[in-house]
Design a protein around this nucleic acid. Structure first.
Lengths: 123, 123
DNA sequence: CAGAATCCCGTTTGATACTG
DNA sequence: CAGTATCAAACGGGATTCTG
């Protein structure tokens, strides 16, 4: 019987976990997916306002990555003024429940974590 | 009727999601939790070897954060040479299933993501 | 409106050396 | 062994300006 079902975490190139984490470990991607998960499609500006504190540069960059990974679809309408809509792909949607779990966990444990953090003096 | 059950994502201070993401969005925390989830307790050096590419500085920093958040327990043995063991707290363990879902998703979709990425020419 | 292009700075991260 | 201390490099990310 094999002892390791889990992929080798030491190999960052071939480990799916690390590979994916390298993407969603960034500051914004997860947030964007969650926003689109709430309501789609959304225009660039709508996402921007929805997150609030993201710069449009980072929003652009993050959306491009998500699009490159096939998690988000980008549709440009030939209008003036230009309109661009974003929505989740099937793959993107499949990630949503997982992220939702993370959100739920966060909601549930945040107060305790805050308290621990404060008590330990680590910011 | 209220329209928003989900916490306001625009408010980074009070939003549990962002607050938690700010922690696990880093490069190593998730990985460390997963490593400890596989086997505990583990000594500092064991975790270090298990992840492989992390510097011992970052491992120290990350472990401290996790300890401050009450996700990891640190036990120092009064021996020579010194021995320090790390294990998950109950809170830490409660996060594990969620992370495992993420791992599963990553395993399942990584190839497709890789392909999309390559096709798009990003990164 | 939706971005692209620059400039710029703070933080993160890694290498290296040192210590209890 | 399990860190701490320091320095330098790399990167993320914000502000601003410009375009189709």
């Amino acid at each position: 019987m094999r002892q390791e079902k889990i992929v080798d975490l030491a190999n960052s190139e071939n480990c799916p976990v690390r590979n994916v984490l390298d993407r969603f470990g960034d500051k914004w991607s997860t947030l964007i997916l969650l926003v689109l998960g709430r309501k789609e499609p959304l225009r660039f500006g709508a996402i921007h306002r929805s997150i609030g504190t993201i710069s449009q540069k980072m929003l652009t960059v993050s959306l491009k990555k998500l699009e490159a990974d096939g998690l988000v679809d980008r549709t440009v309408f030939a209008e003036v003024p230009p309109r661009v809509e974003y929505c989740l792909t099937e793959r993107g949607k499949s990630l949503l429940p997982v992220l939702q779990q993370l959100v739920d966990w966060a909601n549930e444990h945040m107060e305790d974590i805050r308290a621990s953090r404060a008590a330990s003096g680590v910011d």
